[in-house]
Nucleic acid binder design. Structure first.
Lengths: 317, 317
DNA sequence: CGCACGTCATAACCTGTGGGAATGACCGAA
DNA sequence: TTCGGTCATTCCCACAGGTTATGACGTGCG
């Protein structure tokens, strides 16, 4: 088993690939040329693969190097998302821009948006709390939070909102599953009577499924398997344990890589809208407005929600 | 800027989350309990976020910890792909199973397959070479390679082959681009007369586009921008420079995250088949057969075209 | 009720990796 | 030839991270 590489070295490798030079790559990452040289050498030694063609006019990637580089880029991308997310979490209290979001949004979308936002607005402290949809709405109402992100189709009293993305639950199975080759879409009735792998009762996706089925007058059968985390569900499906309904955001990469297969459904609406919510009256201020614009530009064709301006009733406790 | 975390610590965090115990997580990764404790502490200090609720009966993740963990899982997943890929590259010469593949397959699919394969067959040395399609075929014919993977629609003389996956070039634009809101699909003629961001001439995807257009009797106009790497194209598109045709495998995550938007096309076939090829007569031996089965199970069942249909029914609220 | 076993934290020590500064070797362009 | 650019090498140092040993604290069993 190859020991794990370290992220700094991967970062460096990518930079060398871009700049065709150890020296400039080194100072681009705030270190010196010998350090960079040693790092890459160590990486080559560890991997047992030559990555760089070093010459006295610069260094370029070997063909193996280019390949490794492309894998490294994905790693670094994910690391950046993690870092953005963590930064937002840490700054929860001292934040200039306070956000609250439900899990799906916080996991899959917010780090990207925050990253983009901070590239536009320098020195911005973003704070993030992860809560369920009703708590998010409460905090937005109380003014503790500048902007909230929720996935609930619930009533939004005295809040303004806008759809920023549209998620969809997709029916997925392992490639070996008999449904993988199925051509006719699965109907609502069949879905309701098929035991699925699912999250525990009360989780967002589980609720969405049940709501969607109830909307067609059906009650879902007991699940085949109940697991505590989405990734656990995902890997159970991949091993062929059975079908599951999972967020498109979660399984996109698995579908592309062929680890999972999507099965078409019909007669049931598994879409759910992800909304930004903010306090009535106060239009989102600078950074919040920027984020809102950015998110809705990124997420979906701007289909602005009709502002549900109800009575501004004060139900602070 | 938060300093970058190291992969071992992230790995450890995920394990602690699973095992609810520092001790067992530590030995699971081949180290001692104090080391693990210090690592996690360091991670918390670096991030400025509490990740673990430590008690005398075990340790569980905080809610922040769970979130960080979910981001960490993606990082680790990509790291594993990188490691699998590198392992295959290194073992090129001493391999028990020699593979050759074109870039797209090698980048996006093979690491996964090899990982799965090595989980089934212990102590397997897999060798990988990355070459263009014609070279792959040559090596397979000469017997130097047990199994090849190509994306060419070319003639396969004296080779047996099997479709293992189906890739598709999708037309993508930035979310702010005017085409992002477009409802009518883009036709072949319009595509041919629109300057696109693309790879340099001779690259696989560029060729595919030109072939597909030529098949409809059209010659593409000069590109808007010519870039040397697929990721460069991808980020140019994301910044709004213009539209591009990119492999579904490349942009899947960006589409899910909303960094890019897909624009429907019509009147042009942008599919391309990814095939495994092997030598006539000699049926693939043990490991090769296993890999072939695994790959075609993962990729080849008929793709649900209704995934697109679901998109067109976005008129609800 | 107390003892054994489980958890994690702390302390002391050691090793080795990785960083910095200075220097050398080499190439190409002016 | 000389200068400006590469990268490699060496020496030294610091500190992160490991291990072992130990302690403190709960839980559960006899």
């Amino acid at each position: 088993m190859t020991e794990l590489p370290d992220i700094e070295s991967l970062q460096l490798l990518v930079l060398v690939g871009e700049h065709r030079s150890l020296t400039t790559a080194a100072e681009h990452v705030g270190t010196t040329q010998p350090a960079a040289s040693k790092r890459i050498s160590a990486l080559e030694r560890r991997f047992g693969v030559r990555l760089l063609d070093r010459s006295h006019t610069g260094s370029t990637l070997t063909s193996d190097g280019r390949l490794v580089c492309s894998w490294a880029e994905r790693v670094i991308e994910d690391v950046n998302l993690l870092v953005e997310g963590v930064n937002a979490l840490r700054r929860e209290r001292t934040a200039q821009l306070s956000l609250a979001a439900s899990l799906t949004v916080a996991e899959h979308l917010l780090p990207t948006w925050i990253g983009d936002l901070r590239r536009q607005v320098a020195d911005l402290h973003v704070g993030l709390q992860v809560l369920n949809s009703t708590r998010v709405c409460e905090l937005v109402r109380s003014g503790e939070i500048d902007l909230g992100f929720i996935e609930s189709p619930r009533r939004l009293r005295s809040l303004r909102s806008q759809i920023v993305a549209r998620d969809r639950l997709v029916l997925v199975v392992a490639p070996g599953h008999r449904w993988a080759r199925r051509r006719r879409p699965v109907g609502a009735a069949e879905l309701a009577t098929t035991p699925l792998i699912s999250r525990e009762s009360g989780s967002g996706t589980r609720d969405t499924v049940e709501q969607a089925l109830l909307a067609t007058g059906l009650t879902p059968v007991e699940p085949l398997l109940e697991l505590g985390s989405t990734t656990a569900v995902r890997s159970s499906v991949a091993t062929g344990a059975g079908p599951a309904l999972l967020s498109e955001l979660v399984v996109a990469s698995d579908l592309a890589a062929g680890n999972l297969r999507e099965v078409a459904t019909t007669g049931i609406d598994l879409h759910r809208t992800l909304r930004a919510v903010w306090h009535t009256g106060a239009a989102p201020s600078g950074a919040a407005a920027e984020l809102l614009a950015l998110a809705s530009r990124a997420g979906s064709s701007p289909r602005t929600a009709s502002a549900r301006d109800a009575k501004s009733e004060r139900d602070r406790s």
